[in-house]
Simulated scan of single mutants.
Amino acid sequence: MSAEQTLDAPATGTRTLEARGVRVEFAGRGGAVATALDGADLTVRSGDIVALVGESGSGKTTLARTLVGLQAPTSGEVRLDGAPLGRGARALKAVRRQVQMVLQDPAGALNPRHTVYESVAEGLRLHGLSGGRGGGPGEEQRVGAALAAAGLRPPERFYLRYPHELSGGQRQRVLIAGALALEPRLLVADEPVSSLDASVRGELLALLLRLREERGLGVLVVTHDLGLAWNIADRTAVMYLGRVVESGPTEQVLGDPQHPYTRALLSVVPESRRVEPVVLAGEIPDPTRIPRGCRFHPRCPALADGTAAAAGVDAACRGTALPVLPAVDDHVAACHLLAARD
């Protein structure tokens, strides 16, 4: 078997990764509690690409880390194929054969003292898949196949290179190869192309689409870029201050946004032509002081321009909390204005 030939995947069939009512709290200054996630729901299935979008500070990365077991929820749970993720090291090790994460910063994620080969082989060795101490033919085949699948061909040309000898796009491909070496069914990618040139971004997005088609891989892409979501995602979930405020098929969420926050995000996307420009006042509130009622109401254009008052929901916006959106396939949004229309 050559280095570019693949091995049989240990995980077969559809995998479903779910967050259900996940809450994550951190200790803040002076004893205050920062609520990074507040009842977040999300579903990712193998064979689907899901985009998780929102401003910095919305909770996207915390939710991604919680989904792969890097952050324990304060309450709620994460499930893989209906079974709650275990908290112990052995349980999480088994989960990571199925679910892998690609971190945002390849320069920081790759050990500068490790060659490309060692970086990709590390996961195989941790999971006992390297063919014995010091590796072996099986390890080299898996490493070569993973590098080739990530677009680094011929893989042998990269084995002895160090991160500083690679371009930014190549380093990102090494991280992806390290994840693919375990042949997971689900991939969580945190801002995978945010620091790359436009041409390289396009190549890596095409790679994610190809992996979905060829391997049935499910991908959660964490991004602030709605244009990226429109180009590759089957489904999109919009986060604001720890909660998903709108979700559904991408063509509906981004083509016919229902939540004022989603419309505001879309209005600054250069490619968008159907949304009037919206300027949001201020920034996302401090997570130690989440507003009462709808958490978006201090910045909501519908309150500022009188739309909410005309619909008779302005008092509810400021004082009545909205329920957590269920993680369903339909297009749903959490907004008092929508409830008033029904």
Rank of each mutant, 00 (worst) to 15 (best):
P10I: 15
R15M: 03
A32W: 02
D48R: 07
I49N: 13
G54E: 01
E55W: 06
E55F: 06
G59E: 05
T61N: 04
V68Y: 14
L70H: 07
A72F: 05
A72H: 14
E77P: 09
D81P: 12
G82N: 14
G86M: 09
G86K: 07
R87T: 11
R87C: 00
V99N: 12
Q104P: 09
P106K: 11
Y117R: 15
G123S: 11
L126Y: 00
H127D: 05
G132Y: 05
P137M: 00
G138Y: 00
A150E: 08
L166V: 12
Q170I: 08
R171V: 08
A181V: 13
L182H: 02
P184K: 03
R185I: 07
D190G: 00
E191W: 03
P192D: 01
R201W: 10
R201E: 09
G202F: 14
E214Q: 02
L217H: 00
V221A: 15
G227V: 00
W230G: 14
A233T: 13
T236H: 10
V244M: 01
P249C: 13
V253W: 01
P257T: 08
A264I: 01
L265Q: 09
R273A: 15
P277M: 11
R289L: 11
R292Q: 01
R295I: 03
R295K: 06
P298D: 04
R299N: 03
R299D: 01
G306I: 04
A327P: 10
D330Y: 02
R341W: 12
